[in-house]
Design a protein around this nucleic acid. Structure first.
Lengths: 188, 188
DNA sequence: CCCTTCTGAGACTTCTTTGTCTCATACAAT
DNA sequence: ATTGTATGAGACAAAGAAGTCTCAGAAGGG
């Protein structure tokens, strides 16, 4: 038996399955493994060979989603920029991953490393909120939990609006920042 | 053995089933009919007597959710008030029904009258947005679809924050209006 | 070309959910 | 008390999904 046997020697099928699961479960969280295999263009047996059960696949999908989001944020957000600019860059990075995001939102992941990754994301967001307040971009009297909740929802809203063609992809990030910080009101 | 079985009234079971389904499916959309019956304090056979199948129960739940939301809005919102005040009153009426709301959000309802009710709700919201713009409470350059999406998400966010004890119920509606129109920014 | 590994298809079992049916019983109205 | 209706419990079958196994064939490296 080869050394990297458990990792799967042919990454194509494994990756196709994960992708199919993300796209399918983003829309229909109850989709069966048969449907996932079909969408992935892969036999049902192959799916079971790579992922020992639904739970395992679920955890792997969650792990990959978090990884992708972490990488996207890391590539786009400049840690030395202002909090407001970091917020904008974060939206820019994350909104295109809206389907991944919504998946993580709905599923309670059992795997420990995935859960840890999720906590890390929340901590990152909480730190950003705290910086925003420190730099005067956020009103201090607003509960931080409320802000984090708004950011959370903005990502999903923006993605679905873009996916539905009602908002241009290029405008999404700025619209998110504006909505969060300045609101949609006329003049004050 | 059921909680409200002492009264012995017949329609109780039907109502208990619908309530249980709303509360259960708001959290776990895939919950089985056995779980619904158990939560309702009702035999599984009784559930099938009242609702001929899962679809029927689903449609009935959707119908009742829409009805409750329509009534709540009708009771709370003064049609002659300003658009901004109507927006606030709408949040006040709808946020406590967040679980109902989220249920409607996730399920694509097949029944025609329920679908019509949903369209009516969307139309009402669109009209409100248009009035807000006319009265200068909303920036004209913001896409209306974006505003409607934000309102939609605010209801659910506010409800979950209130349900999680992170925001006081009394503050929720004002916080929603402020978030939508003025944003959460510091000073400007 | 040969050999190992991975794959697809299908048969098969098990488990859960759904839906139907029966029967004894509790309750309400008369 | 009697009568009719709703209910709860449980047995039962049908359907779907999960999971396992086998076997023939394709893919890729040597």
């Amino acid at each position: 038996m080869g050394p990297d046997r458990q990792a799967g020697l042919r990454p194509t099928a494994r990756r196709a399955i994960v992708d199919a699961a993300i796209r399918l479960w983003a829309v229909n969280p109850g989709a069966s493994l048969s449907e996932v295999a079909l969408r992935a263009g892969v036999g049902r047996a192959t799916l079971h060979r790579h992922f020992h059960g639904r739970e395992v696949l679920l955890d792997e999908v969650a792990r990959i989603c978090l990884e992708e989001m972490r990488d996207a944020v890391g590539d786009t957000v400049n840690p030395h920029a202002s909090a407001r600019e970091r917020l904008r860059a974060m939206f820019e990075a994350v909104v295109p991953l809206g389907d991944r995001y919504s998946f993580l939102h709905r599923e309670s992941v059992a795997a420990e490393d995935a859960a840890a990754g999720y906590r890390a994301q929340l901590d990152w967001a909480a730190g950003l909120v705290s910086d925003l307040k420190a730099e005067g971009d956020l009103a201090p009297d607003v509960p931080s939990a409320w802000v984090v909740g708004q950011i959370d929802q903005l990502v999903w809203t923006a993605w679905s609006q873009v996916a539905g063609g009602r908002v241009a992809a290029a405008d999404a990030a700025s619209l998110c920042v504006r909505t969060l910080l300045e609101g949609l009101g006329g003049k004050r």
